[in-house]
């Protein structure tokens, strides 16, 4: 097994291959794929397709295949969570103060930022025309694909890299994990933490997965100061405000990284209802309360304690 790490999509990326010989080919595909997703789906690039779509003023807009796929996946997530994971949260995020890359959010004078809170919930109004590959976003609605597009990138790149490198591949984008191909014996060992920038060697729980995806959502990262107090990026689309939740972190395993990410984001926003929601869907999960106490759901291994 061999791995590399790099910066991408405003966060970090990790690539590992079960066969060290497959790493160079997988790395080329990772770099290629990340650039493609960034150009298609970034809310912060002036030259991205998503930015153009958000600025189209309600005009039907032809989009590329990758943005199309990312939109379909995002709308599927909204449907499956009854709008708890909502791609039309872009305007709410901007008004709440997340109006530039997080690196720039961190360095500005936060106390001068006056947030406003506006519910989202417009995902059913997004119009798709598959034949023309056109999308219409109603005026005033802004898309943010941050959650599901990153996970889709991880799934897609892991699948492509596993085929190209002819071995098992793990891709981690900002803490969202996708694996494909034949895993190493015992599965891919993954540390679970509040913050994806935590080093692998730091003591903490660790699990192994052999297929699908694993995603963690947390309210302790991507926070910013404002004139009315600290905000975080996991907004509740129903209020447009940072989710008020008993969980500081939710980690979910699913059949794909997209589904894991959808469920972990929903779990944080759902709050007290999350354990039952996850159990109903047979999704193994580890939820961490704000005081650090962990709740295990759906067959998550409670024995995966600090190594």
């Amino acid at each position: 097994m061999k791995s590399i790490a790099l910066r991408a999509l405003g966060t970090s990326a990790v690539l590992a291959t079960a066969d060290p010989a497959g790493l160079p080919a997988a790395r080329r595909l990772l770099v290629c794929g990340l650039r493609a997703f960034d150009l298609a789906c970034s809310r912060f690039r002036d030259d991205s397709e998503l930015t153009a779509l958000n600025r189209a003023g309600g005009e039907p807009t032809r989009v590329g295949e990758l943005l199309w796929d990312a939109l379909v996946v995002a709308l599927r997530a909204a449907e499956l969570t009854d709008g708890i994971v909502d791609p039309t949260v872009g305007r709410s995020l901007r008004l709440a103060g997340y109006d530039r890359t997080y690196l720039r959010v961190r360095v500005r004078e936060g106390r001068l930022v006056e947030p406003a809170f506006e519910p989202a919930g417009h995902w059913r109004s997004i119009e798709l025309d598959e034949d023309r590959r056109q999308v219409r976003v109603p005026p005033g609605v802004e898309l943010d694909l941050g959650a599901t597009a990153k996970a889709l990138a991880a799934d897609s790149i892991a699948g492509a890299a596993a085929e190209l490198a002819a071995c098992g591949v793990l891709v981690v984008l900002g803490g969202d994990v996708a694996v494909a191909g034949s895993p190493p014996e015992g599965g891919w060992p993954i540390r679970i933490a509040d913050d994806h920038s935590t080093h692998c060697d730091v003591p903490g729980p660790a699990v192994a997965i052999s297929a699908g995806g694993l995603a963690t959502s947390s309210t302790v990262v991507r926070r910013w100061d404002s004139s009315t107090g600290e905000q975080h990026h996991l907004l509740d689309p129903r209020t447009g405000r940072p989710a008020e939740t008993p969980w500081r972190t939710a980690t979910v395993a699913a059949g794909s990284c997209v589904d894991a990410n959808t469920a972990s984001t929903a779990a944080v926003v759902l709050g007290h209802a999350a354990p039952a929601w996850l159990e109903d869907r047979r999704l193994p999960a580890r939820l961490v309360r704000r005081d650090g106490a962990a709740v295990y759901v759906g067959g998550w291994p409670e024995r995966a304690l600090a190594a």
């Binding site: 981690v172 803490g175 891919w188 933490a193 692998c200 999704l283 024995r303």
Partner: peptide
């Protein structure tokens, strides 16, 4: 939402990556 083919297992080797919030 598709559940995993199998639940995660306790890791028996040193982690190669971190799943965390970002």
């Amino acid at each position: 939402i598709s559940p995993p083919a199998s639940a995660p297992a306790p890791a028996s080797a040193a982690p190669v990556a971190v799943s965390g919030g970002s």
